[in-house]
Amino acid sequence: MERLERRMGLLAALPIGLLLMVSFIMPMVVIAGFAIMPQKVFELAHMPDFSSFAVIWEQGYYKSLLRSLGLAFLTTAILFVVCWPLAYGMAKVFGRFTLVITVLVVLLLFVSENIRLFGWNLTLMKGGLIEGHLRAWTGLSFETPLYTWPAIVFGMCYVYFPFMLFPLAQGIALVPDDARLAAMDMGAGPWRILFEIEMPLAAPGIVVGCLLTFVLSAGAVAEAKLLGGRSVVVLTDDVESAFTYAQNWPLGSALSLMLIVIVALIALVPISRIDLDAIMGRRK
């Protein structure tokens, strides 16, 4: 009877399983196929020559990749430091006020990313909300921070803030208060409790938050365009140019594939070490 139920379950899962295969795996297969095609072809019916990878090396596209990864690392690190105290408060201290914070942060997500970033553009620009008012009221002025790489990191921190905050809060909620109290009773200081009790026990939340932020930041493009004024050309920008203005689908595919593989490799290591069931509260 149990075997029959299991078989029925598999059968019932088949349609959605096929749909997921087609919608997730097939585009990847097409991208991988185009990535090995000769330059500037628009069909897969050609002899593979892997020339796009030579172009990536010769024309210095790896620089964009390194910049994308560097910005993503920096964003993740900053967000971790910024979000930890707030997440801690949400999980352990604020009580009902946590709901207010959650609603406020979620509300941000209801507005399109581009509109929010353009709002920052208007706020930070010369003659914008901050510099304009300061100049009008005091006569003082300052060089705007726009069109620089710190502006891009600021934009990414702002946009991906919720993706770090909520998993961290979930992770911190997993830390039993008794463990912390016991450590305190045994004479551990606050830093020791943080590094040896809280962070290891909240690791699933930390890993999920860092991964989400890192993967999204590595693929981000709007921040570099709207706040960074392309002072840093990120890899996703190069992918877009290759597919459109260069009309070079194989090069665009090879660049995409390179980003996907590297980010997947970086993500796989921590994912293999955490128990996702634990953070979902389904530990058996």
């Binding site: 353009f118 553009n121 726009l146 069109y147 365009k225 709207l226 004024g229 392309r230 002072s231």
Partner: peptide, 8 residues
Amino acid sequence: LMTDDLVA
């Protein structure tokens, strides 16, 4: 600055 957004 460089941008492909004419409004910006």
